[in-house]
């Protein structure tokens, strides 16, 4: 967007020991890289990082917007930065466009994805971007200039923050009602042994596993996984129904999902009526293809 408007893209990097990160960022072709690489910035302190980011902004003639990924760190940093520099803020954006008279117009999901808003951000918009909502294209051959930024005086509490250790999560499947993505299986999977295909896809997506009443009644899956009127009512961002025909009692439990994908052999299955995307086919062959496609694109091993 900035390039189209004739502006500059400046990457700001804050932390300690950022050598590799600088190289990685270069590949995406920013015009300049502002670097604050300092051992005092080893542990993430929103207080310290926002001071450094504010200092970076000070050095720019006319900053138009600050963007960051909507990760835990990005979502924590930007509001603080905005409050400090008199900017505006919108987290978890899925779309951006220039605003007449300056600033940005940002679309973002609210109410757990059940609605969305467009927000006008007139003064210096600080926007975190929903992961995967924007494609990052490498620009090979670019060689942006790296400029070191002098670290401003940091508040004492920020310097006192110490990270003791980082524990990598065991990758447990999330609680069904809270899972942002649910992969659900029905009779079309033909037997309990084939649910491993559901579990594999769930694993690469960090998704929860759901089931139709029919397979819970048949004892293939535990009752805790049952989605529907007599089971759990869910509304994830993405619900993938595999081999589920879409009996009314199942639809009641998941029809408010933001996006529904149906994979079913029977083109007349009612599930296709409420789905956003449909694949007519055998879940047993589609699922492994889907799992490996997503695993490859995310650079994780195919289960």
């Amino acid at each position: 967007m900035s390039k189209a408007g004739g502006g500059e893209v400046v990457a700001g990097l804050v932390g300690a020991g950022l050598g590799a990160v600088v190289e990685a960022v270069k590949a995406y072709g920013p015009d300049r890289i502002l670097l604050a690489d300092d051992p005092r910035l080893r542990g993430f302190s929103a207080q310290a990082y926002s001071k450094v980011a504010a200092k970076m902004l000070e050095g720019l003639a006319d900053p138009k917007a600050v963007l960051a990924p909507a990760t835990a760190m990005g979502r924590e940093l930007l509001p603080r930065l905005a409050a400090e520099v008199g900017g505006t803020v919108a987290p978890d954006a899925t779309e951006l466009s220039p605003r007449e008279g300056g600033g940005l117009v940002v679309s973002r999901p609210i109410f757990g994805g059940r609605a969305s808003v467009q927000v006008d951000l007139p003064a210096l918009p600080c926007v975190s971007l929903r992961p995967n909502a924007f494609a990052a294209e490498p620009r090979p051959g670019s060689s942006p200039k790296v400029e070191n930024v002098a670290i401003p005086e940091l508040p004492a509490p920020a310097l006192a923050l110490k990270v003791e250790k980082t524990v990598v999560s065991r990758g447990d499947t999330p609680e069904l009602t809270e899972a942002p993505i649910i992969i659900s299986g029905g009779r079309g999977l033909k037997g309990p042994e084939n649910f491993v295909l559901i579990e594999n896809l769930a694993k690469v997506l960090g998704a929860g596993v759901g089931a139709s009443r029919a397979v819970v009644d048949a004892g293939w899956r535990p009752a805790s996984e049952q989605v529907g009127q007599t089971g759990k009512v869910v509304s994830p961002n993405l619900y993938v129904a595999c081999g589920i025909s879409g009996a009314i009692q199942h639809l009641v439990g998941m029809s408010s999902s933001r996006c529904i994908v149906a994979i079913n052999k029977d083109p007349a299955a009612p599930i296709f009526k409420i789905a956003n995307y449909g694949v007519v086919g055998d879940a047993l062959t589609i699922l492994p293809a889907l799992t490996s496609t997503i695993a490859k694109s995310r650079g994780v091993p195919v289960p």
């Binding site: 467009q118 927000v119 995307y277």
Partner: peptide
Amino acid sequence: GAVRSFALPPPKTGAKM
């Protein structure tokens, strides 16, 4: 900032196959 517009997802009209 100020909300410009609020939107609900459009009603489902059948899947894109």
